[in-house]
Design a binder for these strands. Structure first.
Lengths: 354, 354
DNA sequence: ATGAAAGCGCTAACAC
DNA sequence: GTGTTAGCGCTTTCAT
């Protein structure tokens, strides 16, 4: 770190570096942005001065001049309670890491608020985006909660704002924006095959209600894997909302009626609901019933005897998102594409008792 | 949002608003920053023009001019695996919310990298802070992982960089910076009293090794609560690192040797280790042994039969942090203080069987 | 290969 | 109350 300007001392500017190196300000600027223009010895001298002074370009000035901020906006949705934790935090960390390497920083977007007619304030994500865009605070957005069929992607697209979605444009196959997603069907297929490999024939599905496209996708993986091995799926598919209490009741009925030897779930939360029912009945996961979740949440990793779970590759997802961002914001022509990543399976005691 | 500049169309500037309102640029600036200087009708006219054009001040320009960014930096530490998820994401969300209300945005800080002599790159949080500071990208930092006795706070303090710590300056009671923390002792006292109220006499402690100040703090709460009710603590305190596997072994020994009827743990991860041992032995949490965790993680909320856990008030913590930030960055003289928040107890099946 | 001039959009000081 | 002037620190022509 070396130099400590401290408070009060103003950070060095281009002019300071120039004076120290005995060149003009523009030459210093070139040394930073177009080093190839400089003669080797000049470049050396300037670089030394930069290090000596601990100089770093003032972001505001650079942003103003270039019209870019090298910031990407990311909305953080509220953390739901009583849900096996989402893997959002893993994605966020990976995104920060990957963005940093590409020279971008991640700015968290707070929801804006719109005043309703009666004066109450309603949280409004779009207003959050809009404000940032209008004030040219960010260069692009990363949108994560596309599964809600939410209007944010549509709005951003209409606004011609650069963005990358983490999640497929389910409702609009003609969508032209860049996206990255995890192949849910591949994940549940992996899970189902894992169970069938261990001898299970009656593998039930506990998923979300029909409206959810993601839920449908994940169900497909289970269904195809079952049919591929000539396993009957009749009466084995059950649905409930992604919340512990309701899911518990459905899981209990499912176990009684369908009598499966294994269950693949659309989320770790649903899998936990199944574990609750087992615990109530004095049954042991992995022995009396095999259970697989989806997300590889912290809960899956720590609940006894370990919950086997489909693990979305968040680090690769973040890298793919940043790659798309680079393309989008880069100088060259860029055709947005979709990237589908295959998850892995974290095997634990709920399917392989130790 | 009404107006859609679209891409290609440049966002409106002060000059555009001024022209439309028939005033000078400076008047528009005053309308935004010093509305009291304007005559009511002029203000009205300017405001209408602002709305009509969907004008928002260009952040880069404002930042350059004022020397502030209205951004606070927050480092996101890597997400540990095989640990009951931290409550970091709850804090982050609350912080974004609270900051937004105060006119600040949260910028995530990626670790910098320092090249070692042998050319390997080591992640270096301080370099991340330093770069942001040098480039005047943020006005202040929020530092969260102070419990590591980490050098970040010391470094920031020496650098005279404004920051608020979420976590006490354990190692330096003379520290002059603003901090917000959760009273761990109060939390474990709450937990212990809850257990004693339910008739438990032999309440064991499963905590972290002696080096951890936070661990020590949390242990104090258990110890004091026990002694206050004349309960012997001899042989009841056990320690292990905050990781599932090692903790499991210690927990097993602890149950055999100390024979407690209840356990208070320094974290949800440790509590999960206890639940593992119970599961292995066919014992039921809440019936055969009462268990309390700390963090109120997603895991505590979803594991059967529900893990009673101390819940740190993240929303209040975030508000307190932003309050301190305001003071720090505000015009008036501000004396940094410490704020200690009392957690609550989320009671579930692991102490109160249903 | 290096330097001079211009200006990004805004706000603070001052004049009217 | 409102307008004029200057300049924050940087990059981008364009000369040299």
């Amino acid at each position: 770190m070396g130099i400590d300007p401290g408070q009060g001392t103003l950070p060095p500017t281009l002019a300071d570096v120039a004076e120290r190196a005995g060149v003009s300000r523009q030459t210093v600027s070139n040394a930073i942005n177009n080093p190839s223009l400089l003669r080797a010895d000049t470049l050396d001298r300037v670089r030394r001065a930069i290090v000596d002074l601990g100089y770093l370009p003032n972001r505001a000035a650079r942003n103003l001049r270039t019209g870019t901020s090298r910031l990407v906006g990311l909305r953080v949705p509220p953390v739901p309670e009583s849900t096996a934790n989402s893997t959002m935090d893993r994605f966020v960390h990976a995104l920060v890491e990957a963005s940093g390497l590409a020279g971008y920083h991640v700015l968290l977007v707070a929801d804006g608020y719109t005043e309703a007619a009666d004066g109450t304030r309603m949280p409004d994500p779009i207003k959050g985006y809009d404000d940032l865009l209008r004030s040219t605070a960010v260069d692009a957005f990363v949108v994560t909660d596309t599964y809600l069929g939410n209007p944010q992607t549509t709005w951003l697209a209409e606004r011609r704002a650069p963005f990358v979605a983490f999640g497929r444009p389910w409702d609009d196959p003609a969508a032209r924006h860049a996206w990255v997603d995890v192949d849910g069907a591949a994940g549940t297929r992996l899970a189902t095959e894992h169970l069938m490999d261990r001898g299970h024939q009656r593998v039930a599905w506990l998923g979300w209600p029909a409206g959810s496209r993601i839920g449908q996708d994940r169900r497909t993986g289970w269904e195809r894997a079952m049919l591929a091995r000539r396993c009957d799926t009749g009466g084995l598919a059950w649905t409930t909302e992604d919340s512990l209490e309701p899911a518990r009741r459905v899981a209990a009925t499912m176990l009684d009626v369908a009598r499966p030897s294994a269950v693949v779930c659309a989320s770790d939360t649903l899998a936990m609901a199944v574990l609750h029912v087992l615990a109530e009945r004095g049954l042991r996961p992995g022995h009396d019933l095999a259970v697989v979740g989806f997300d590889d949440s912290a809960t899956a990793q720590t609940v006894p005897p370990g919950l086997t779970s489909v693990r979305p590759p968040m680090d690769r997802a973040a890298v793919a998102v940043v790659d798309a961002l680079r393309g989008l914001l880069g100088a060259e022509q860029f055709t947005p594409t979709g990237v589908l990543l295959t998850p892995t399976l974290s095997v634990r005691g709920s399917t392989v008792p130790s």
